[in-house]
């Protein structure tokens, strides 16, 4: 993907919305926003064709900065609103942005069913392993043993692997990246937008303000370098011995499969229903 000029990104920003944004200095959400704007500007889509839907939390504030139809919904419910929008206007490109708590705790039921249903919704889940906006409580992706404001003695629950969960539930496209690997993130978001069916890109991001501080992980830069150290591109990951995979995770496209989307199945069913109706009433 060629570099995208700043002015192109600027064209997708909402100009009547006041900046600076709400996020902490050093937060990965600004990087994700930039990446998403670059992917959108490269997609060839018209701004009027795109709808951005979010839930609640730090990630919920992302769509307001983008110059498209944007819907900031209730906590965990972005995919339900997105389902209604996509069914109502199949010609629109519907993108949801959620956090880890938003998508896999309160919205976990919607995530697995959206993946199973395979309606054409593009989902970005930014995973910072904590509830950042409410002060650093543990989320479904908080690692075992980590500290959180609701786990002062260390977290005792195993965590979700968001990508594996989405893949198992039936998503057509699943990829993982981090806000450190921005070039890769740009490309993956581009692929997500282009891919029909339900797709998920999991984006690892630091919350140095809450998660990092409580777990003594250093500055946001230290946390970013951790992504560099632990994240392994898929091509290399496949060559790693099981012992070498310890404490690391694969980045890139994890699942890319052709499946009948809900959109196509519904269209076919509606045509059958209309034909049956015509037979009954000649």
């Amino acid at each position: 993907m060629p570099p995208v000029h700043r002015s192109v990104v600027y064209g997708w920003l909402r100009h009547d919305k006041k900046f600076p944004h709400v996020w902490c200095p050093g937060c990965g959400l600004g990087i994700l926003l930039g990446s998403l704007l670059r992917a959108l500007s490269q997609s060839g889509l018209d701004k009027n064709q795109v709808v951005l839907v979010s839930g609640i939390g730090c990630s919920g504030r992302l769509p307001v900065y983008v110059d498209v139809g944007s819907v900031h919904t209730t906590h965990g419910r972005a995919l339900t609103f997105a389902t209604g929008i996509k069914l109502a206007k199949p010609e629109l490109t519907v993108i949801t942005v959620m956090g880890d708590g938003d998508a896999t705790a309160i919205g976990g039921n919607h995530l697995i069913h959206a993946a199973r249903r395979n309606l054409d919704i593009k989902t970005v889940i930014i995973n910072n392993q904590t509830y950042g906006m409410t002060g650093g409580q543990y989320s479904p992706t908080t690692p075992l043993g980590a500290k959180a404001t609701t786990a002062p003695y260390g977290h005792i629950e195993p965590s979700f692997d968001i990508s594996a969960l989405s893949a198992t539930a039936g998503a057509s496209f699943v990829a993982r990246s981090t806000v450190y690997h921005v070039t890769q993130l740009d490309q993956l978001l581009g692929q997500l937008i282009a891919k029909p069916g339900f797709g998920v890109v999991e984006v690892l991001s630091p919350c140095h303000t809450n998660f990092g501080r409580q777990n003594r992980l250093g500055s946001q830069i230290d946390m970013m370098l951790e992504f560099k150290k632990r994240g392994v591109r898929m091509e290399r990951w496949q060559k790693l011995a099981p012992g070498e995979r310890q404490g690391r995770y694969p980045l890139g496209v994890l699942v890319d499969r052709q499946q009948q989307s809900f959109d196509d199945s519904y269209q076919a069913m509606a045509e059958r229903a209309a034909a049956l109706r015509r037979e009954k009433q000649p």
Binding site: F81, T83, G84, I85, K86, L87, L92
Partner: peptide, 16 residues
């Protein structure tokens, strides 16, 4: 998948 989702989908559709 549940009633929360049902009303969420209705809101999305109505906005569209």
């Amino acid at each position: 998948e549940d009633e929360i989702a049902s009303l969420g989908a209705c809101i999305g559709a109505s906005l569209a």
